[in-house]
Design a protein around this nucleic acid. Structure first.
Lengths: 295, 295
DNA sequence: CACCGAGCCGAAAATATCTTTCATATGTGA
DNA sequence: TCACATATGAAAGATATTTTCGGCTCGGTG
C-alpha cells in the first residue's frame, strides 16, 4: 500500500530513522517507526506513554532517542515538537513516491525526480559538516588521493577523481580490489584514501582503506551505514542517506544521488580552499576542451 | 527603536504576551518577556534555568506558563520548540545559490543540494514524455544497445549500461571514440545507440551516433542542447536542463544530475516494460552481490 | 507611627518524568 | 544442545516540574 503522507514531507527524521534502522534492535525500530510516522503525536507523550504505545519499555525509548542522536528522550521530544510545527505549517504534497509497474511514463518521471530531490534534502540535512570540513582539509593538503569504489559507487569514485584532477590534485580511482590494495601500500601520512560504499561492508573497498589507514594515510568513508565495518578504518565518516527502495527502484539509484552530493561538496570545499590554484586550473581545463566541440 | 527581528516574524506568542502582560505580576512579566524574545533559547532551558535567567523562581515560571495558556512549563517548552523550528524554516527559502569562495562549508552543502534539486525539477518539467516513451520502447526491444559518453557524461553512460545489464539487456558503454565508431558499424535496425553529451556538440560522441544512425539503428540523444549538432542523427531527443554555472560550480555538476535523472527514467521505463524478465533479474543480481559484503 | 491585610514571591517538599542499572529473556552460532 | 552474546523491561535512581506554604513587601488605616 502507500506510505504515510507525513513521511513524504521532507522529514529528515524519517531519513535518519532509515539510515540508523539497521543498527537498531527490533523494539527500538518499533519506537523509531512510531516516532517517524507521527512526530506530533509522539511529542505529546511522555517516555512512559510512548513505551506503552509501542509495547516496549522506557529504557528502550531512551535508547532509541540516543541512537537517533539526542542526549535523551527529553530532547528527542523537543525536536519532535519542532518537526510537528514545521509539518503543520508546510503544505502536504500529494505525491506517493512508490513506482508501480503500470505507472505511465510521465508519473515515473515525476516520482523519480521527486524522490531524488528528497534524497538530496535528506543527505544535506544529515551530513556532518565537521567531518566534511575535516575531510576537505585533508584533501586540500594531500600529496596524493586514492578513491575506492565498486559497481555504482565506482562511478562516483571516478566522478570525484575527475573533478579533483581538474583542479590540479593527484587523484586516482580504483575499482580493481587488487590494484587498489597494491597502491594503498604506497600511501603514507599526508595522503588521503577515500572509500565509497553504500552498504558500508563491501570487503573489496574496505581492504584497501584498511591498508591505507595502517600506513598512516588520512582515511575517509562515504557510506550509508555509519556503523558499518568500513568506518573502523575511517578517520572521517561522511554519511549518505538511505532512501526507501522498492523493486523498481533499487537502492543504487538514491544512494548514488546521495553519494554524488557528498562528492560535490568535497570538491567545492577543496576548490574553495585551494582557490588560487583551483580557479585557474578549472578555467584551463574548460579552455582545453573547447576545441573538442564542433561548432 | 526597532522591534526585535524575531518578533516581527509571525510570532503569535509575542502578541499573547502583550495582551496578557497587564494581568501579570512584575516577575512574571520578566519571564514572559524572555520567552517572547528568544523562544529557541528558552526552549533549551529547564524551569530552573529559565528561573535563573530571569532572576525569578521556578514557581514564577510555572505561573507564567499557566497565564499564557499552557497547563505547565513542560507544555510551554514544547510550544516554544515548535515556534523556534517554524521560525528557522521560515527563514530558509531565500538562499542565493551562488557559491562564494568564502562560504562556510555548511552553506556549500545547502546550496549544492538546493541547486541540484532545482536541476531535477527543471529536468522533469522539461522532459518530453513522448520522446522518452519512444526511447524506452526502442530499448526494451533492442537486440543490443551502445551508449556513448565522454568525460563526465561517460560516467552517466556507464551508469545506464550497468543498470541495463542488470535487467538482462545487452548494453555497452563506450568512451573511446575509435572503438565506439568501430562498434557502431556493427549496429543495425532494431539496435539502439544512445549519445550523451551536455553540449550537444562533442564530436567524439556524435560520430559514432552518426554511424549507428546510418546503419539503421534507433538513435537517442541525451543532451542539453536540443538544437545542437548531435540531434541531427537522433531519432529521439531527450533534453536535459542547463543550469547556470559559476566558477566554483562547473556545468558538469548539474548536467550530470540532469542526465542521471533521464537515465533513471529510461531504466525504470524499460524495467516496467520488461518486468517479467527484469524483476527476477534484479532480484538475482542483488542476491549475487550479497556474499561480497562482510558481516 | 505602628499595625493590618492582600497579594507577590521563592524555598523547599511533593510529584511527575526521565535515566540508569541490573537481572532475565531471547536468540544465535559452534 | 549448550554457551555466549545481545536485547529487553522492571525497578531503582536522578532530574525536572509542580505544588505548598510561609515570609515579604507595600499600601492603607487607626
Amino acid at each position: 500500500m502507500t506510505q504515510n503522507v507525513k513521511e513524504i514531507f521532507g522529514n529528515s527524521l524519517a531519513a535518519k530513522v532509515r539510515t540508523l534502522a539497521p543498527s537498531m534492535t527490533r523494539s527500538m525500530q518499533r519506537v523509531a517507526e512510531a516516532v517517524a510516522k507521527d512526530p506530533a503525536g509522539c511529542a505529546a507523550l511522555t517516555v512512559t506513554g510512548l513505551a506503552e504505545l509501542t509495547g516496549t519499555s522506557e529504557a528502550t525509548v531512551v535508547r532509541t532517542a540516543r541512537i537517533l542522536g539526542y542526549p535523551g528522550y527529553r530532547d528527542l521530544r523537543l525536536a519532535l515538537a519542532g518537526l510537528a510545527a514545521q509539518q503543520a505549517s508546510g503544505r502536504a504534497p500529494a505525491i506517493t513516491t512508490d513506482i508501480a509497474v503500470d505507472d505511465p511514463i510521465a508519473d515515473v518521471v515525476t516520482k523519480l525526480a521527486y524522490d531524488e530531490q528528497q534524497t538530496l534534502a535528506d543527505t544535506a540535512a544529515g551530513l556532518d559538516t565537521v567531518q566534511l570540513a575535516a575531510a576537505v582539509s585533508a584533501l586540500a593538503g594531500a600529496r596524493r588521493t586514492d578513491v575506492y569504489g565498486i559497481g555504482a559507487s565506482g562511478l562516483v569514485a571516478q566522478d570525484l577523481t575527475q573533478k579533483l584532477l581538474r583542479i590540479g590534485l593527484m587523484a586516482h580511482a580504483h575499482s580493481d580490489p587488487h590494484l587498489a590494495v597494491t597502491n594503498a601500500v604506497q600511501l603514507r601520512a599526508g595522503d588521503v584514501a577515500i572509500a565509497i560504499t553504500h552498504s558500508g561492508s563491501t570487503g573489496d573497498v574496505i581492504e584497501p582503506l584498511r591498508v591505507a589507514f595502517e600506513h598512516g594515510a588520512t582515511t575517509v568513508a562515504i557510506t550509508g551505514r555509519p556503523d558499518g565495518p568500513v568506518t573502523q578504518y575511517a578517520d572521517h565518516v561522511l554519511t549518505t542517506s538511505t532512501a526507501r527502495e522498492s523493486e523498481l527502484r533499487p537502492a543504487a539509484m538514491s544512494s548514488r544521488t546521495s553519494q554524488l552530493l557528498v562528492v560535490d561538496c568535497l570538491f567545492v570545499g577543496v576548490a574553495q580552499q585551494t582557490y588560487d590554484t583551483a580557479g585557474p586550473a578549472l578555467a584551463a581545463s574548460y579552455e582545453a576542451l573547447a576545441h573538442r566541440h564542433r561548432r
